[in-house]
């Protein structure tokens, strides 16, 4: 990484008069962010199970071990608690570790180091130390991996002061948010989505950061605000297309980071449309969309509501194996269309 220009605003030489934005898959974008950060700063390194020669359980680290060596792309034994603890210690002692946990479900094994150590050390020590650790883990269902490899656990982490929680839904955000996470002096949990790893999108070649705490407005409409996270963002956008054909105009908002949460953009949109449909893959009870619902009704947007704030969530069940059951457990595009249309038509 030798240049710091932003390719999106750079005017290139005449050779490529109309520069096609380069596309990468979501997993390539994550890898590129890690590679650029490692190239720029010796303190940055990756550790996790099978991140080396194997290339990561989902292929995200890929060839990084060949570019940065086995010290900085460090295979670990199957010891999630130990791995995260080692990252906490390395961060305290001046490094910038990135931990990959193979499936976000396995963070349960590491929860002491995440929630009791990483999250709290800066505060407990009165600000005397920081834990600049990034923990990346794929979540979500849709792969037939059943209940222990498919959860959406963002609410666990978002409930802990001291953690930051990131859920990228596009390739560009996967790169830009990860770069911001690596920059950050505090622990950041980055929840990637397995179904998005192979999705492609335009991604700046340069290491362009996307700030933590900025809700993205993915689509602007007038009848209803759909707030969605993770893989639900693309489903909400597809639903909005179908709703438009049906005469319903929907905004689609993607918070991108749950902590810090840019609730102002959400509240402003709901105040304008008068309706809110909050969509998440995670089970409804105690889910993060409950928090967003509360933020809306506690805000001045309450006075502008034309319909009850509505959540469309995963069922309160463990993710099942059979494909027809798995599909039924989490919101699909049809569900979003039906629920949004009902909100608009009934109220």
């Amino acid at each position: 990484m030798t240049t710091t220009s932003d390719t999106r605003s750079a005017v290139g030489p005449a050779v490529s008069a109309v520069a096609e934005p380069r596309t990468l898959t979501y997993s390539e974008a994550v890898r590129e962010a890690m590679a650029q950060a490692m190239a720029a700063d010796d303190r940055v390194f990756l550790l996790g199970e099978d991140v080396g020669t194997y290339g990561g359980a989902f292929g995200v680290s890929g060839d990084l071990v060949h570019r940065f060596g086995t010290e900085r792309v460090r295979d670990t034994p199957i010891s999630e608690l130990g791995i995260v603890g080692a990252a906490v210690g390395a961060g305290l002692a001046g490094m910038r570790p990135i931990v990959e946990i193979q499936f976000s479900d396995f963070t349960a094994q590491a929860m002491d180091q995440i929630a009791n150590q990483a999250a709290k050390i800066h505060f407990m020590l009165g600000g005397a130390a920081t834990v600049p650790m990034v923990l990346r883990a794929p979540g979500g269902s849709g792969t037939g991996a059943a209940a222990q490899h498919s959860q959406s656990l963002e609410a666990w982490f978002a409930h802990v002061p001291g953690l930051q929680v990131v859920m990228p839904s596009t390739a560009a955000d996967a790169k830009g948010l990860l770069l911001s996470a690596i920059d950050d002096p505090n622990p950041v949990i980055v929840l990637e989505h397995k179904l998005l790893y192979k999705q492609s999108g335009p991604v700046p070649e340069e290491p362009v950061r996307v700030r933590l705490g900025e809700t993205a407005v993915r689509r602007t409409g007038t009848d209803v605000t759909i707030v969605a996270t993770g893989v639900m963002v693309s489903r909400a956008l597809e639903a909005a297309e179908r709703l438009a054909a049906d005469g319903v105009s929907a905004s689609v908002l993607d918070p991108r980071t749950l902590r810090p949460l840019d609730d102002q953009t959400i509240v402003d949109s709901v105040a304008a449309t008068g309706r809110a449909l909050l969509v998440q893959e995670a089970p409804k009870t105690g889910g993060f969309m409950s928090e967003i619902a509360a933020r809306i009704v506690e805000s001045p947007a309450f006075g502008r509501l034309q319909a009850p704030v509505s959540r469309l969530c995963g069922l309160d069940v463990p993710i099942p194996y059979a494909p027809q059951l798995e599909q039924a457990a989490v919101p699909q595009v049809d569900d979003i269309v039906t629920k949004a249309a009902e909100l608009v038509r009934r109220w």
Binding site: T4, A40, P161, G162, S180, D184, P185, E206
Partner: peptide, 18 residues
């Protein structure tokens, strides 16, 4: 609530903010 999060320091080298 001051010390729940450390203030952003110097980012790692290279790149820009969007």
């Amino acid at each position: 609530t001051d010390a729940v999060y450390a203030p952003a320091g110097e980012p790692i080298a290279g790149g820009t903010r969007a």
